[in-house]
Design a protein around this nucleic acid. Sequence first.
DNA 1: CTCCGTAGATGACCCAAGTCACGCCCTTGT
DNA 2: ACAAGGGCGTGACTTGGGTCATCTACGGAG
Lengths: 230, 230
Amino acid sequence: MEKSLLLKRVPFFRELGENEIAALSERAVERTYSKGELLFSEGDECKGLFVVGRGAVKILKSSPSGREQSLDIQMPGTPVAELPLFDGGRYPATAQCVEDSELLFIARRDFESLVRQHPELALAVIRSLGQRLRKMVTLVEELSLKEVSQRIARRLVTLAEARGRKTPAGLEIELPFSQQEFAAQMGTVRELVSRTLGRFQSEELIAVDGRHITIRSFEALEEIAAGLKK
Amino acid sequence: MEKSLLLKRVPFFRELGENEIAALSERAVERTYSKGELLFSEGDECKGLFVVGRGAVKILKSSPSGREQSLDIQMPGTPVAELPLFDGGRYPATAQCVEDSELLFIARRDFESLVRQHPELALAVIRSLGQRLRKMVTLVEELSLKEVSQRIARRLVTLAEARGRKTPAGLEIELPFSQQEFAAQMGTVRELVSRTLGRFQSEELIAVDGRHITIRSFEALEEIAAGLKK
DNA sequence: CTCCGTAGATGACCCAAGTCACGCCCTTGT
DNA sequence: ACAAGGGCGTGACTTGGGTCATCTACGGAG
């Protein structure tokens, strides 16, 4: 059984010993979803905790007119929905698989009794909520106070820092998602992303080839992100 | 000494017994600030936890151009800055007194040792972080997917629900802050707030008299907030 | 009483960004 | 091989909302 292997990868559960992990993986149920399927919808009652094993899960808000704001994308090893699990409320947003995915599901009561036995777990939950809160604060700041081109520049910069490969031509990065998805993360629409990347390219700040982007002037992007330059 | 009285009012510390409260209030330092003073700035290192005793503290982000996005306003009895206290990071935003205020300050190490002795406190922290996170998610949704008039209508509705007084003319509410501040909370500017309230008034949905607002058609406001109507 | 300083109202203007429409390319499935 | 659909590039247009500049009303200080 590899459930326990997955559980051990979750930063969340690092504090637990072998036997707790084993006990937990007894209780955990494996579920598979295909791309596009919903784990739950905003407003649903929270039945338990999900942990991403394979694939990816997007947390999102959507408007009646069909626009979508992505709040976060959970990759393998991350928990989904620890917030409502704790405060007993409903899911504040919708969760959708963006690829075919395998998840572990841990029923609410199982998780609760686990926390009672291991209060240290609460600290891990705090860390996790804290991270999310910081992300949301940053997002609010960008949506409210920054222009779209600034947000895009900022994103390119952070992507480059996180996983850029150095080459003679510059830092190379791979966009990990479609422009549509990129736009949803930045609170704008596909067209603007396309246009802005085009503009950056014509100004020779970047070179675009499909989802493959070479950064030719990291500094200029940083200035745009900071609002010092257009 | 009334420090302990204040501490007992904090939902946060409800779990503590008499002696812990007493011990904590020994350690807590009273500080007074005048209107406009900063408690700390975004990016500062976190020295400890504040608890609002009197007055009010605004948590905000601001842009170089001078615009301001208010994230939250803390009233008496609420803690400020429990997030960086826990994850050890820096303050994610700035805190400013919006009135002359008295606060308690609890040094980081004191709080930490308290949590070690009383792990239940962690659950209280989780509740508090959770609330904030929910607020931020809602804010992101509004900034990204709703128009300004929708946000304003929604706010009037929630204010009315929370503290509206029924009168023959309709529900009456008192705006608890200036239009400037109101705008900062909704991610817009003063002028738009003024104009929108004016429009609502001319459409006879509300009657405005200074900060005193009478809601004449609650339903219409709800429809606007939901985006069903302009 | 008068003088500021702050809060609010309002009109004129401008522009970022969202919408619509279309065309192109590439992949996938039949 | 072809059709169908998804992802992307682009031009044209509209508009919400932010900026600027006044003007007025009110309230406190001197």
